[in-house]
Amino acid sequence: MTQSEATPPIELRGVTKRFRTPDGSTYTALRDIDLTVAPGEFCAVVGPTGCGKSTTLSLISGLEEASTGTVTIDGRPVGGIDRRVGFMFQQDAVFPWKSVLTNVAAGPLFRGAARREAIDRSRDWLRRVGLSGFEGHYPHQLSGGMRKRVALAQTLINEPRILLMDEPFSALDVQTRQIMSDELLDLWELTRPSVVFVTHDLEEAIALADKVVVLTVGPGRVKDVFPIDLPRPRRVQEIKFEPRFVALYERIWNSLRDEVQAAYTRTAGEAA
């Protein structure tokens, strides 16, 4: 086994993250998080609102620093934004004044690619996400699902070794979400980056992932890790009817349910 094979692409060890609040007090978002993502592994993270799921992504991406503990990529401590990492946010990060073609080409151009190469690669990725013929359109002329396809192409054209996704499909209707999930899996299979996918939707997590990590009510800790032994390739809508999917859902929900209830009780108490 080579060193690159032995070293996990993503590793968090004993990670705690605290924030200073406006009133000067300290808020602990994560406490003593241990998390490892293997090469090419699709890891979904679920948990109640406020458990630190998005904060975990920010630590891996280098947008935030851990208060204590270590966050490493390929065995090296994260020290800022890393070009090997792609981040797809909940809100589209498209430039409204650029066409679809130049939006997708922006990443390669920023990284020093020649304009012709960047444009050619942009056309190829738009073809892959089913947007050939829309190169000259602008974001406001697209549906929500089409904008998400632009965002996918915009992220994957840079061929990230690590892909971070923060509820990227949450604003879409159910049918479009399922289509986008299938497209994501098809595109992920091309290069197999290591993925950390944050979602509130347990069905989505199970349908997409190789493992599902359950975080506790905040401050977030890893409560359970569930391997997902469903066969690939998968079709999201079809896999949900498999008996094994139903069994996995029941097991994971039994772990997640108490955390969701605790979060609700806390929120209700604070509002009273």
Rank of each mutant, 00 (worst) to 15 (best):
155 T>S: 13
140 H>M: 05
257 R>Q: 15
132 S>W: 10
132 S>L: 15
135 E>D: 12
108 P>Q: 07
202 L>R: 11
43 C>A: 13
31 R>T: 07
103 N>Y: 08
252 I>T: 04
163 L>S: 03
70 T>G: 09
163 L>V: 09
53 K>R: 10
271 A>E: 14
226 F>N: 04
159 E>S: 12
41 E>F: 09
226 F>C: 12
205 A>W: 08
250 E>F: 01
131 L>R: 12
168 P>L: 09
212 V>K: 08
170 S>M: 05
257 R>N: 10
73 I>G: 00
154 Q>E: 13
267 T>K: 06
226 F>P: 00
216 T>G: 08
124 D>L: 15
30 L>H: 00
72 T>E: 11
240 K>C: 02
138 Y>E: 00
101 L>D: 04
87 F>S: 02
194 S>E: 02
90 Q>H: 08
47 G>A: 05
131 L>S: 12
51 C>I: 02
215 L>I: 00
196 V>R: 04
33 I>M: 07
242 E>D: 14
108 P>Y: 01
158 N>R: 15
57 L>P: 02
68 T>V: 11
111 R>G: 00
208 L>D: 11
92 D>Q: 03
203 E>V: 03
234 R>F: 06
193 P>W: 10
207 A>H: 07
70 T>H: 11
172 L>T: 04
255 S>W: 00
85 V>I: 15
2 T>Q: 05
130 G>K: 08
223 K>Q: 14
25 S>W: 03
210 D>H: 15
153 A>W: 08
74 D>Q: 13
152 L>Y: 08
159 E>M: 08
191 T>S: 15
69 G>S: 08
199 T>P: 05
180 M>P: 10
86 G>Q: 12
201 D>A: 12
48 P>Q: 02
75 G>T: 14
220 G>A: 09
28 T>W: 10
200 H>N: 10
53 K>V: 04
194 S>Y: 11
80 G>F: 12
251 R>Q: 15
245 F>L: 05
157 I>S: 04
42 F>D: 02
59 L>A: 05
39 P>Q: 08
26 T>K: 01
29 A>D: 04
80 G>N: 09
73 I>A: 13
133 G>V: 12
25 S>F: 04
5 E>R: 09
4 S>M: 06
113 A>C: 00
133 G>F: 15
224 D>Q: 15
221 R>C: 13
141 Q>R: 13
63 L>W: 03
224 D>E: 13
221 R>G: 11
237 Q>S: 10
95 F>Y: 14
29 A>M: 04
152 L>P: 02
125 W>M: 14
93 A>G: 06
170 S>C: 07
248 L>V: 02
34 D>R: 05
239 I>H: 01
142 L>N: 01
44 A>R: 07
163 L>H: 01
116 R>G: 05
138 Y>I: 05
29 A>G: 09
114 A>N: 13
120 D>V: 11
253 W>G: 01
259 E>H: 10
144 G>I: 06
180 M>R: 10
5 E>N: 06
22 P>I: 09
96 P>V: 08
253 W>E: 01
253 W>A: 06
265 T>M: 09
82 D>V: 11
202 L>M: 07
172 L>G: 02
22 P>V: 07
108 P>G: 03
192 R>W: 06
22 P>W: 09
113 A>K: 11
41 E>W: 05
25 S>V: 03
37 V>Y: 00
66 A>S: 13
28 T>Y: 08
261 Q>V: 14
189 E>L: 11
